[in-house]
Write a protein that binds this DNA or RNA. Structure first.
Length: 944
RNA sequence: GCCCAGAUGGUGGAAUUGGUAGACACGAGGGACUUAAAAUCCCUUGGCCAGUGAUGGCCGUACGGGUUCGAUUCCCGUUCCGGGCACCA
């Protein structure tokens, strides 16, 4: 009987929908398992074969867990806000919602063909008001919270107000933008507006004037993870630094918890490392330096407090407020000129061209340990955003300071015994300290580091600094607060209106605040974000409704926020929403949260390491502090599926002709390689007729063939339209079936590894499924008998159960598929058509190839879905061998093998070896030194 | 520059974590069936050498060392490819 995959797959896909096979409900009786894929952005190009890789891998796991008796949640949805739909809208005027809906419909159609076990009743879309209701809600909660360092959690802002009313800022340990100091009386004396401004300094979602990454080409600001090498991640446009008032999220408050949490989750080491780098914890010392002949004092941050005796100059970041204070009248002209130069330089200039630049401020600082006067310089190599924006320069032991000192001829004092600093600085934190202080000099309180190791010196200095109140020990993080405003249309609107210039929250019960209609998706003529084009975008505080802008009176009707939220807003808590997607009273009910807890297995690309995966961990920790999420980490285990690259094909055109030469002969001509659509190439052989039809300019093409064929060249490249190497899963499904596609994608290699797609190999997977199908048939009759299985058959089956079970647990599907092939071949040869063997086989293959499994399961007389079957367990007793093949090696050199009874003990085997029973010709007169027996594997006889 | 991961046939990749390297699949070559094609099935397929032959020998997991009876696997050094961070003091 022919394996008619088209009919089978269609039938079961329809039946799964009709019978709601994959609908999941909370069931306290059963253990839960939550499998999640990073939801896709539905782009206009549709899915290519690379996209489903992770979905297939997680689907196999989800189905496997279900067969093991778990109540599995395996949802899917769409990250529907995004730039492409908005840019398409700008070009065509078509509303992004329409484009997005169309793209989603197309995605859904493609996904449905692959046979996933998604519970579509839980689908979410980030652009759906019912969904972004809770994105807006979370934002308001962040606005209404501050971060308490003492209790290490977010707390309601009301607690902070209470604290201010009782004791002002005294005894306050909260994360803040700048350190404020006032008494309770002073607080009470403040106006409402002033109080609001003070609170803004502490809120977790706060409005602040900060340096932002401004991308003029995109007309919006970008978060740090959206800027790569000084250009925008999307589009590669230049990015400049600009001071703007923006909403920010106080992610940095969670830096330590984000770091600590990594220890509790099961992610790859490299991904954790990436996040550690991004968080960038560094432990050091903040020290105060006085400015000579002035009352001014400033603070620097250093991880090398031990090098204090080697400081020969100080450096300020050009953007630092100290620059204005410390510049002397004589130096003002030079400094202004330098600042103008720095301002001209974009982020990209700084990265590509690292020349040494700087200017002397005219002021001197006093080394607190020695009283020495040290010149204060200004240079762009010091960053305003990190530490305090000011450093102490130790040219002998920091390569940047070294370059600077050499360039401007500043002194260099070596501090490590024996370190050669004639060519470069000695940056390593090792060696014995000297010159601290230098001979003949004395330091404050006779402090000396001479003779200590660097580690000891760092500790000693920290202690001294703390005791003498010269500064304090400080931990710095590279992780910055996230800029949360975007000057775009297609994003979540902020539920915020402005009264007297201060932001006010739209009442919680009025959420969601729906995105308004606009006639143009571009920024306004006055440079306001696209929402500035909306005519009805004002908040009436009397009626609590959105009203026409013309009614704004700044008394009861106020303008609404014009920015929208960034892409990561909607994707930061979607995994929680899947647990309870239709709840309109809360983001998630307590009951659903407590049942589903967090994601057990999360599958997605590693490109989100410093974006989504940081933000959603932060977001979840915040919700954890609020008591909304019961788990501090959202994703317990994370698997990064590798990208599937394209395999491009090339044809070689002889220069200035329309003649194409085959790969093997191309070196004889002067040729230009051109990409050719991989869909008209099969096994690297070009379909010449299809090629002529492909492009009008090729209609008259001529060919120089080898062996009557045109052979194309190939290369592995990113899968993209412009390389003509996109392979569409629909085409594969049409030609081979979804089960073949699923099997082949897994067979291609380890899920985590990047690998090129090569359609050529797919025949093997398809052939296997045919063989599997044929095991159940004799001609046109379906034959499954109730005969008792033989030991050989049982062995084949149990070997397979063992292998597949172990493989799935560790995501090693690529090695399970050969096991299926081997077992199928063995059983076909044994002509086994016994239910006791074939039934478990069908269950085993169900996660991989669900359609064929369902069909066979039904044919075997079952009335329920194979999804509700039970995963077979293997029995070791069928795997035990009667005899064990032992390899015999002499001095490690393998010679032959001998069968021993399986229960032979090592003493018996060794006796056989020593008794020269193992072919004496290799031993003869030589003496046996040692016999090493590797259990059930090898006898190594060491001879003289 | 720093950190992380990796390198195995013509190709994708296996190898029970120290025990017969190259499973399985693709591709290639040969054969069977067929008027023919498709489909299906069988054999060969890391390199070199010897033999009519079954077969036997040597080399071989990027390169050079080391530990071990035995190394793709562990250690040290080198080269190359990929990823992350990058004037972060």
């Amino acid at each position: 009987m022919e394996y008619n995959f088209r009919e089978i797959e269609k039938k079961w896909q329809q039946r799964w929908v009709a019978q709601q096979t994959y609908r999941t409900t909370e069931n306290p009786e059963r253990k839960k398992f939550y499998v999640l894929n990073m939801f896709p952005y539905p782009s206009g190009a549709g899915l290519h074969v690379g996209h489903p890789l992770g979905y297939i891998a997680s689907d196999i796991y989800a189905r496997y867990k279900r067969l093991q008796g778990f109540n599995v949640l395996n949802p899917m949805g769409y990250d529907a806000y995004g730039l492409p739909a908005e840019q398409y809208a700008i070009q065509t005027g078509q509303h992004p919602a329409i484009t997005t809906d169309q793209n989603i419909a197309r995605y859904r159609e493609q996904l449905d063909k692959i046979g996933f076990s998604f519970d579509w009743s839980r689908e979410v879309r980030t652009c759906d008001p019912k969904y972004y209701h809770w994105t807006q809600w979370a934002f308001q909660q962040m606005f209404g919270s501050f971060y308490c360092n003492k209790c290490q959690s977010a707390q309601p802002i009301e607690k902070l107000i209470e604290h201010f009313e009782k004791q002002g800022t005294a005894d306050l340990d909260a994360v803040q933008n700048e350190e404020l100091s006032f008494t309770a009386d002073e607080w009470r004396a403040k106006s409402d507006n002033e109080k609001q401004q003070v609170l803004m300094n502490y809120r977790i979602a706060y409005l602040a004037e900060t340096m932002v990454n401004w991308c003029p080409a995109l007309g919006t600001v970008l978060a740090n993870d959206e800027v790569v090498n000084g250009v925008s991640e999307r589009g590669g446009y230049p990015v400049e630094q600009k001071r703007m008032k923006q909403w920010c999220l106080r992610v940095s408050a969670y830096a330590q918890r984000l770091l600590d949490g990594l220890e509790t989750i099961d992610w790859t080491e490299s991904l954790k490392e990436t996040q550690r780098n991004w968080i960038g914890r560094s432990e050091g010392t903040e020290m105060q330096f006085k400015v000579a002949d002035s009352d001014i004092e400033f603070t620097i941050f250093t991880t090398r407090a031990d090098t204090i005796f080697g400081v020969t100059f100080m450096v300020l970041a050009p953007e630092s407020e100290l620059v204005a204070q410390l510049t002397t009248p004589e130096q003002k002209a030079a400094v202004d000129e330098y600042l103008a130069y720095v301002k001209k330089r974009t982020e990209r200039d700084r990265i590509s061209d690292r020349k040494v630049t700087g200017v002397f401020s005219g002021s001197y600082a006093i080394n607190p340990f020695t009283g020495d006067k040290i010149p204060v310089w200004i240079s762009e190599y010091v960053l305003a955003g990190y530490g305090t924006g000011a450093i102490m320069a130790v040219p002998a032991h920091d390569s940047r300071d070294y370059a600077f000192a050499r360039h401007f001829n500043l002194p260099i004092i070596p501090l490590i015994e024996g370190a050669d600093i004639s060519e470069e600085s000695f940056d390593a934190k090792e060696g014995i300290v000297m010159n601290s202080p230098a001979t003949g000099k004395t330091a404050l309180d006779g402090f000396s580091l001479n003779g200590l190791t660097v580690k000891e010196a760092i500790a000693a200095t920290k202690q001294f600094v703390t005791e003498h109140k010269l500064g304090r020990v400080k931990v710095n993080y590279r992780l910055r607060d996230a800029i949360f405003s975007r000057q775009r249309y297609w994003g979540e609107p902020f539920p915020v209106y402005y009264k007297d210039g201060m932001p006010q929250m739209v009442p919680q019960e009025c959420l969601p605040l729906e995105l308004p209609e606009v006639d143009k998706f571009l920024p306004t003529e006055t440079g306001e974000p696209p929402l500035g084009n909306a005519k009805k975008w004002a908040w009436d505080t009397k009626t609590n409704t959105i009203v026409d802008n013309s009614l704004i009176d700044n008394d009861t009707v106020f303008p609404l926020e014009l920015n929208t939220m960034p892409g990561f807003a909607g994707s930061s808590a979607y995994y929680l929403r899947y647990m309870d997607p239709h709840n309109d009273q809360a983001l998630i009910s307590k009951k659903a949260d407590e049942y589903w807890q967090n994601v057990d297995l999360y599958v997605g690309g590693s490109e989100h390491a410093t974006g989504h995966l940081i933000y959603s961990r932060f977001w979840n920790k915040f919700l954890f502090d609020l008591g909304v999420s019961c788990k501090e980490e959202p994703f317990q285990k994370l698997v990064n599926q590798g990208m599937i690259q394209g395999r491009s094909n090339f044809v070689y055109r002889i220069k200035d002709t329309n003649t194409f030469v085959s790969l093997g002969l191309k070196d004889q001509y002067d040729v230009t390689p051109l990409h050719v659509d991989v869909n008209i190439v099969s096994g690297d052989v070009l379909d010449i007729e299809a090629f002529k039809a492909w492009r009008p300019e090729y209609a008259t093409a001529e060919f120089i063939l080898e062996d009557g064929k045109y052979i194309c060249g190939w290369a592995v490249e990113k899968m993209s339209k412009s390389m003509f190497n996109v392979v569409n899963p629909d085409m594969i499904v049409e030609k081979f079936g979804a089960d073949t596609l699923r099997l082949y994608e897994m067979f291609l290699g380890p899920v985590e590894q990047a690998k090129p797609w090569d359609t050529n190999g797919i025949d093997g997977s398809h052939r296997f499924l045919k063989k599997f199908w044929n095991m159940f048939w004799q001609k046109d009759d379906f034959v499954v008998t109730d005969d008792a299985p033989t030991p050989a058959e049982l062995k084949s089956l149990h070997k397979l159960i063992k292998k597949v079970t172990e493989d799935i647990e560790v995501f090693s599907y690529n090695t399970s598929i050969p096991a299926f092939m081997i077992a199928t071949n063995e059983l076909t040869q044994l002509k086994c058509q016994k239910r006791a063997i074939l039934e478990p086989m069908v269950v085993l293959i169900a996660p991989f190839a669900p359609h064929i499994a369902e069909e066979l399961w039904e044919k075997m007389g079952h009335t329920t879905s194979v999804c509700d079957a039970q995963w077979p367990t293997f029995n070791e007793k069928y795997l035990v061998e009667d005899t064990v093949k032992m390899m015999v090696a002499f001095n490690g050199k393998t010679r032959f093998s001998i069968d021993f009874p399986a229960d032979a003990d090592n003493a018996t085997i060794e006796a056989a070896a020593r008794g020269h029973e193992l072919t004496p010709k290799y031993v003869e007169d030589k003496q046996i030194m040692k016999v090493i027996i590797v259990p059930k594997r090898m006898i190594n006889i060491v001879i003289k």
